[in-house]
Amino acid sequence: MAKFELTLPENTRRFLHDAGELSRFAARFFAEGFSPRYEVLEFVRQCFVVGYKSLPLAGLTAFIMGLVLTMQLHPTMVYYGVEAMIPAMVGISIVREIGPILTALIFAGKIGSSIGAELGSMKVTEQIDAMEVSGTNPFKYLVVTRTLAATLMLPILVIIADAISLYGSYLGINIYENVSFYLFFKQIFDHLLFMDVVPAVIKTFFFGFAVGIIGCYKGYYSSKGTEGVGRSANSAVVVSSVMIFILDLLAVQITDLL
């Protein structure tokens, strides 16, 4: 151990160690992910588990969020006499920020913990070691497929969740006044720009990758038996959630520069 490391507090040293290991883990993902052999069937299965099975939860959350956001905004917008701006305001809020962040957090809670716990339990029961012994590359089969599935499925999940959320908003505004479906969505699209949609979609790839890679990392390096499995699952959710906010902050800064 280097002298510099010994001068740092234990927590800081552990944090930096984890950050470095995670970076190496991510680099290994890119190195092994783009080289044959590809675990296509496992990737498709993981897409189904990660993406499709997350849709009910993400969809329900998004619907409620759109409905509630509209109902909460309505009195204030009426007070200022700009209730006609509700569709545009809700649309931009959901597409740019609320949809991606909320869905990513739900995704992190459901998929991050699931991956962490699954890989953690495989680790502590030495199934991963057994795979290595049997000639299967556990990293390709377990990590690459799950991380890639999370990276590709979260954007799709976010787009569908955005649509559901906007529909919830449409129902919400119709509680108070009569707005046609066409007019509601026309007002949204009249105010949306490419710069609202494209960066929002792009950042969700990073969110998905963060959730996948952190969940896999935490599970892949799990230890201390069943207690370690729970800790892996928990830390996978916590770290990926924090990472989502950090990435979002970076995405906003980069978008502002464009």
Partner: peptide, 23 residues
């Protein structure tokens, strides 16, 4: 499951393309 996944993915891509087309 593959069919459901296909529908899910296509729905997402369709919505994205539709949004970009309208914009």
């Amino acid at each position: 499951n593959s069919v459901k996944l296909g529908v899910f993915v296509l729905a997402g891509i369709f919505l994205l393309v539709l949004t970009l087309y309208i914009l």
